[in-house]
Nucleic acid binder design. Structure first.
Lengths: 100, 100
DNA sequence: TTACATATGTAAGTAGTTTACCTATGGTGG
DNA sequence: CCACCATAGGTAAACTACTTACATATGTAA
């Protein structure tokens, strides 16, 4: 799992969101470091949907504009937590080590 | 930076190593999770050499077998530490959060 | 009326993997 | 003796996820 995917799942763990809201929340969560392009986002959402980590929970129209809401599935939450644990451990291996 | 690259740099930070020794050390550092294939390793070493994160420090022949030793450059150490900090922060964002 | 925020998407290209293949020596088990 | 594994180094093709560029449309502020 790469960073864009990780933060997409992290944003959806807080609450279901539509695409544009995910982009904004990912920017916040990452300290403005990860600026998701729409190409990255929608392709990732398709893929995560096929993998069962994310699902569409609602389609609505607000002010003539469509909004599709996505939510994290239980498998998605498991994958996200596993990835967070993996990264924490990988970081620890380097940060605790004394340099040569 | 992806996980194989990260652990290659982490292995070289401890001491200069030749390719095969990197593969073994990466397995240890990652808790046997990352099993580097040679294709991943040597292509990554080429790339990291071009980027100035790693350099060849010695070629030797042991028992009729060539060994090429690689070392982390100062830029390589900077990149590794930055990546470790990035991962620690990304993990923290998820692990400290209360699920929805 | 121009520009930016909101909102969703597709297509083509790129990067870094993975998978599969190849050579070669030395030691161990059957 | 032969098979297999550890050691040691490498290439080529395929795959995946990402980036970049393009396309469309409405609402609001300057």
């Amino acid at each position: 799992m790469r960073e864009p995917t990780y933060f997409i799942l992290a944003a959806l763990r807080e609450e279901p969101r539509h695409g544009y809201a995910i982009i904004k929340r990912v920017a916040e969560l990452s300290g403005e470091r990860v600026a998701l392009a729409t190409g990255t986002l929608y392709q990732a959402l398709d893929r995560l949907g096929r993998e069962g980590l994310v699902e569409v929970v609602r389609d609505e129209v607000v002010n003539g504009r469509a909004r599709r809401h996505y939510a994290l599935t239980p498998d998605g939450e498991d994958a996200l937590l596993a990835e967070a644990a993996r990264m924490a451990e990988a970081a620890r291996v380097v940060l605790r080590a004394r340099p040569a």
